[in-house]
Design a protein around this nucleic acid. Structure first.
Lengths: 253, 253
DNA sequence: GTGTTTCGTGCGATTATCGCACATAATGCG
DNA sequence: CGCATTATGTGCGATAATCGCACGAAACAC
C-alpha cells in the first residue's frame, strides 16, 4: 500500500474533525488553524464541508460537533449490541456493587468508554459517558487493555510515555509498568491506586476471548476499597460474572 | 458560498463513512461500492484512508466502524456535560417512573438518543443506546423535536414523508401530522400510541429554552399506560421535573 | 475613531484524484 | 478437483480538485 492510496484531502478533513474531540468545545477558525497546522483557506473549506455533511455546526463565530457524530457512535454500539446485551449486565453489576461500572475498549493509544451504568443510589458519579477517555499506562482499565493487546501496542505505549505524571504516585519507570501489565495478564485482573487520580483506585477485568478486540469491565472506588481481601473478592466476583454474561463482543475472527 | 468551498474528496469520504451508520455491520468493498455509488478504486482509497485515520477497521474481508467514532461522540457529549449533568437526572427519573427514560435531539431528519437510563428493576429494556435513531413523524420524541424546531424542518420532514407506514395506526396525512405537532407545541408534551411500534406508547417533553437546539426527554411504555389521567400527570410531572433539573443544554446563542 | 484580528473569496499553478484496464487472488459450485 | 465468477490490488496519465496567496471587507477591542 503506497501513499497514493491515502486520500490526502480526506485525511486532512478528518484531522480537522479530530480537533473537536477534546472536550467538544466550540472552536474558532483561528483555533482550528493553530490546532491543525493547515492554511486558513484550507481549514475554512474543510470546515464548510464538514458542516455541509453534518458533522459540525455553527456556534456563534465558531464551530462545534453536531449530533450526527452520535449516529456514528450508534453504528458502532449497535454492532456490539450494547443496548441489548451490555447495558443490562452493567446495570445489574452496578446495583450489585453499589458502584459505577463501565465497559471500555482501546481506541488507538487510549482507553475509551463504550458504556457505563451507575447504581440508583449513586449521589455522585464520575461524570463520564460513552466516549470518555482514560490513559492506558496509569489506569487499571488501560493496563488491562494493554495486557489484552499485542506486544506492539504495549511497546508503542511505553515509547510514547513522555513525562506526564498524573499524580505523585504515578509509576513512570517503563520496566515497572511492563511488570504491572504482565501481572495483570497473569492474574486476570488489574488494580491501580492513586496513579491517575489521588485517592482513587480502579479495578478492571477482561471481557471476551484472548485475541478478540480488547474489552474490559471496570469500576472505580476510593483508594482503600479493595484492600480487604473479602471486599476484593466480592468485586472481582461480580465483575467476572458480568464478564461471562456479556461473553464475546462483536464479531469473532 | 459556492461549490468550490466544498472539498469534494472529503465529502465523498464522509459519504463512505456514513454507509457504516446503519446497524454498524461489517461491510465488504462491493457493499460499499453499491451503497456509495462511487467507483471501486475510489471507494478502496477512501476506505484505506478512513482506516489509516482510525475511523474504520478491518474485519475479515470487510470493514466496520472503529472505537474512534466513540471519541467523536464523547466530544459532543462532553460539550453537553451529559455525564455530569444529564445522566444523574435521567437515572432518578427512570427510578421514579420505573421506566426507561431518554434524552434525544434531532440529527438532520431523525431523532437521535443522546443518553438514556433504565431503572434497576428493569427486566427488559428497549435495547437502545447513545446514537440510536427514531423517525421524526411517527414517534412522540420526533414530534416533540419537530415542535421545537423551525417550520422549515417540519416542512422538510413532511416533504420527505414517503409511504413507509410503520404500523397500521401510523398517521400518514400531512395535515393531520402537522396538527399533532402543533398540538404538542401548544400543550408542551406529546404522546404517540401504536404509530411506530404496535402496542407501544411514547411520551416526550421538551428540555431547555425555545430557540435552543431541540432536546426532549421521553419514555416509552405499553400502549395504555398513559390513558389514566392520574398516571399521565405523574409521568409528566417527573419528566418536567427532570427537564427543569437539566435546564438549558449546551451553549446558548 | 484607530488598530488589530478575523473572515470571505478570486485566481491560476500545482497537486491530487479518478477511473480504466490489466493481472492476480479468492470464493462458490458442480 | 477444475472452472466460472467475484473480488482485489495497482500502474497510468488526463482531468479535476486543491491550495495558498493577496486583496478587500467585516468584526472586535480599546
Amino acid at each position: 500500500m503506497s501513499n497514493r492510496d491515502i486520500a490526502a484531502t480526506l485525511a486532512k478533513g478528518l484531522d480537522v474533525l479530530a480537533c473537536f474531540e477534546r472536550r467538544g468545545q466550540t472552536l474558532s477558525m483561528p483555533d482550528l488553524v493553530e490546532s491543525s497546522g493547515f492554511d486558513r483557506a484550507t481549514v475554512r473549506r474543510l470546515c464548510l464541508t464538514l458542516e455541509h455533511c453534518g458533522y459540525i455546526e455553527r456556534r456563534g463565530r465558531g464551530f462545534g460537533l453536531a449530533p450526527r457524530v452520535l449516529a456514528l457512535a450508534g453504528g458502532y454500539l449497535g454492532h456490539l449490541a450494547v443496548g441489548r446485551r451490555v447495558q443490562p449486565v452493567l446495570r445489574n453489576a452496578a446495583e450489585a456493587l453499589d458502584m459505577e461500572v463501565a465497559l471500555a475498549t482501546r481506541d488507538r493509544m487510549q482507553a475509551i468508554y463504550v458504556d457505563r451504568a451507575a447504581p440508583a443510589s449513586a449521589r455522585v458519579t464520575l461524570g463520564l459517558s460513552v466516549g470518555s477517555t482514560l490513559p492506558l499506562l496509569h489506569t487499571a482499565v488501560g493496563r488491562m487493555l494493554l495486557a489484552r493487546s499485542g506486544p506492539d501496542v504495549l511497546a508503542r505505549a511505553l515509547d510514547a510515555l513522555g513525562d506526564v505524571q498524573h499524580t505523585e504516585a504515578s509509576e513512570m519507570a517503563p520496566d515497572a509498568l511492563r511488570g504491572k501489565i504482565d501481572e495483570a495478564r497473569g492474574q486476570g485482573y488489574c488494580i491501580a491506586r492513586n496513579e491517575f487520580e489521588p485517592g482513587a483506585a480502579g479495578i478492571a477485568v477482561p471481557v471476551g476471548a484472548l485475541g478478540d478486540a480488547p474489552f474490559v469491565l471496570s469500576t472505580t472506588a476510593s483508594v482503600n476499597r479493595f484492600d480487604d481481601a473479602a471486599a476484593l473478592d466480592r468485586v472481582l466476583d461480580v465483575l467476572r460474572h458480568a464478564s461471562i454474561s456479556i461473553g464475546r463482543i462483536g464479531e469473532q475472527p
